[in-house]
Design a protein around this nucleic acid. Structure first.
Length: 377
DNA sequence: AAATCGGGGGA
DNA sequence: TCCCCAGATTT
């Protein structure tokens, strides 16, 4: 009769994991762990914040945003009570702006429905807006010690290589399959350490261009043994991005400029921008005016000049071709307010979140009188 | 199941 | 250029 702890070795909820992968990984981690600020705390708020910032974002890029956000919004209450516009301004430049909206939603939800205390289990955490399987597992393990494996890009890559898994990691069934493998490997009593370890291992050792020569797992790694490192992970190639043509007009009247919040279901929703006319291709000014009736109205009695602008702005799925003009409307000319637009002073516009394309457009034209050195950064 | 949502860095 | 990054959500 075997003792129960021995029987449990082949059970998913095993308390001690002797798999060579796990042993080698944890040994490696104890010598190579990165020192990262969100590892110095067990506060679920700080951990949640870091995980959302780091979604699809490199540590080096997200780190300054995390530090600043935690400084400005040190508690979930402070974030819940903050203006969403302030949050967007701090998120400016980080990308995937729906993260900021969901962050605010969840903060308000945690304060209003959970007395400011985050849920403590994976199953409850994943109910929160902007919290998916990865982030729920990260918070559950790091803050509460629950043995749920994180399955991010690192984990897909490492497990695909180590076990020779040929499943397309973009296929809908891939997450379930890789999660089941990871669940077999994660030690019940060292879940947080295992999850931190596997992500550091993916970043530092088993990176996209891996360092197999110095890898402690190379002897038991399928891809390395078979000399098929480049075969894993299997990943469907991405489609080509579409072209779009943005024509921006910096419209000025009496020290104020015409701006609008992007609210449609499109890129940069929640950010602010100048008057924009999108065209199906590169167009002359005359053709652009035909595309947009209000533009001709704005130009009645106004002066217009061409501006320097970023030629191209690349996103994951789109290539934005950009041109820009400067329209000065005389003070005495009465412009009826266009729907959805508002006039704003540059120093107030600076406080609103803007896309990197718009920031670059502004930077290219800081010599304009209207900006008057009020728009740094 | 596929598409979409940013921006930046490394090879 | 292409790929990938501490993914989530919508269609």
């Amino acid at each position: 009769m075997l003792p129960s702890f021995f029987v449990s070795l082949n059970h998913p909820m095993q308390s001690i994991n002797h798999h060579p992968f796990t042993k080698g990984l944890l040994t490696w981690y104890r010598q190579h762990a990165r020192e990262l600020p969100w590892r110095q705390t067990q506060d679920p708020y700080a951990i949640w914040l870091s995980e959302v910032v780091l979604q699809q974002t490199r540590v080096a890029q997200g780190l300054p945003y995390y530090l600043k956000l935690l400084e400005v919004f040190p508690t979930v209450e402070s974030l819940a009570h903050a203006d969403e516009s302030a949050l967007f301004r701090h998120w400016q430049g980080l990308g995937y702006y729906s993260r900021a909206r969901n962050l605010h939603k969840t903060a308000k939800l945690v304060v209003s429905d959970f007395q400011g205390k985050f849920p403590t289990t994976y199953d409850d955490l994943i109910q929160l807006p902007g919290v998916g399987p990865y982030t729920a597992a990260a918070i559950a393990s790091f803050a509460f010690g629950e043995a749920k494996p994180v399955v991010d890009g690192n984990v897909f890559r490492i497990l695909a290589r180590y076990f020779g898994i040929e499943t397309d990691i973009l296929h809908s069934s891939a997450r379930k399959e890789f999660t089941e493998v990871a669940q077999e490997l994660i030690p019940n009593d060292l879940a947080a350490e295992f999850n931190q370890a596997i992500m550091d291992f993916g970043s530092l050792q088993c990176s996209p261009a891996p360092l197999c020569g110095s890898c402690p797992l190379s002897l038991t790694c399928f891809a390395c043994q078979q000399k098929r490192i480049s075969d894993f992970p299997v990943k469907q190639k991405k489609a080509k991005q579409r072209n779009r043509y943005f024509n921006y007009f910096i419209v000025e009247q009496g020290k104020r400029i015409l701006i609008r919040e992007r609210k449609e279901k499109d890129i940069w929703s929640g950010l602010w921008e100048f008057y924009l006319v999108e065209s199906p291709q590169v167009e002359e000014l005359e053709s652009i005016m035909e595309l947009d009736g209000n533009l001709s109205t704005l130009l009645q009695g106004a002066t217009i000049q061409s501006l320097k602008s970023p030629k191209l702005h690349i996103l994951s799925h789109q290539k934005i071709h950009c041109r820009a003009w400067y329209i000065q409307v005389p003070d005495n000319l009465d412009i009826s307010m266009l729907d959805g637009f508002q006039w704003i002073q540059p120093e107030d516009f600076e406080k609103l979140g803007k896309s990197v394309l718009l920031l670059n457009l502004i930077t290219d034209n800081l010599h304009l009188q209207i900006f008057n050195d009020s728009m740094p950064r």
